[in-house]
């Protein structure tokens, strides 16, 4: 196995307990919320049936997910914050602490960009693992819902409907449109690279590096944000706008990686 993949594994391995904790937290909060809300719903329906009231519409798994907007968003937001901080910590943890692992990491017989890419890949693995875990949880939660709700109160719903009924899912985490997923996560990946390169600017030039890093993030952020909000529909056709955006992203990506690789292999100080 090549050293890049070994480094990816090393980084994943170092974060495994944090990742499992996030998964556990997500599962715990979501299942608790789901069980509680479903119980309340079923009780309400039973009560209505006992009183002979006719309810207009049964309820579906998607309805319950729709009721749990906030509760489902909490573990997701926590995970985003934790992973967001880890984008920085994945570097700084190698400088701080008794082991100062950076000494070992940067004297491994491999090109330094592998270290950079492995750390980035590890972050992406964590993000996608959390998203995938959320999908698995939804499957599990749907099964749980089906067990809890008697079929006479239950309305069937599509899996996509359940995803669509939570705004955090449909707007950010799991957009139903595949292209949208690629674009969102593509921009996310780009943002991670930009932050990595900013960290390396600081690690290479220390105090003045902080200023360079802030400027660099601001410029890249403006370019990426500008491309997102690019409103040229009055002049360009949609596919041309897409091409322009794509070029901007590619330029930012190219520049960020070039600079990042250069810093990590030539300028960084341990």
């Amino acid at each position: 196995m090549n050293r890049y993949l070994k480094l990816v594994h090393l980084e994943v391995h170092r974060f495994r307990y944090a990742l499992f904790s996030l998964m556990f937290l997500t599962a715990a909060i979501q299942i608790t919320g789901l069980v509680h809300t479903t119980q309340v719903r079923v009780k309400g329906w039973r009560e209505a049936a006992r009183l002979g009231e006719h309810s207009t519409r049964n309820f579906s798994f998607a309805d319950v997910i729709g009721d749990l907007q906030f509760l489902f968003a909490i573990p997701i937001l926590i995970s985003i914050v934790v992973l967001g901080l880890y984008v920085f910590l994945i570097w700084y943890r190698d400088w701080i602490g008794r082991d100062k692992f950076a000494y070992r990491l940067f004297t491994l017989p491999t090109v330094r960009r592998n270290v950079y890419m492995a750390k980035a890949t590890a972050i992406f693995v964590f993000v996608f693992a959390m998203v995938s875990f959320q999908l698995l949880m939804l499957l599990l939660e749907r099964q749980l819902f089906n067990w809890m709700v008697p079929s006479e109160y239950r309305m069937s719903s599509l899996f996509a409907e359940a995803v669509a009924s939570n705004l955090v899912f449909v707007r950010f985490l799991l957009p139903l449109d595949g292209i949208q997923f690629v674009v969102y996560y593509g921009i996310g990946i780009l943002a991670v690279f930009v932050l990595f390169t900013a960290v390396l600017l600081e690690r290479s030039y220390r105090l003045p590096g902080i200023v360079y890093a802030i400027l660099y993030v601001a410029v890249c952020g403006a370019a990426i944000g500008g491309a997102v909000y690019l409103n040229l529909y009055n002049y360009f056709y949609p596919r041309e706008i897409t091409a322009i955006r794509f070029c901007i992203y590619l330029m930012v990506m190219g520049f960020t990686l070039t600079l990042g690789f250069r810093l990590v292999s030539k300028k960084i100080t341990v």
Binding site: D99, K100, Y103, R104
Partner: peptide
């Protein structure tokens, strides 16, 4: 270059291995 690290082993002043 990257091969330097196969030819020169470095023993820093601390044990650079995760605790």
């Amino acid at each position: 270059n990257q091969n330097t690290y196969e030819r020169v082993s470095y023993i820093p002043d601390h044990l650079a291995i995760p605790a």
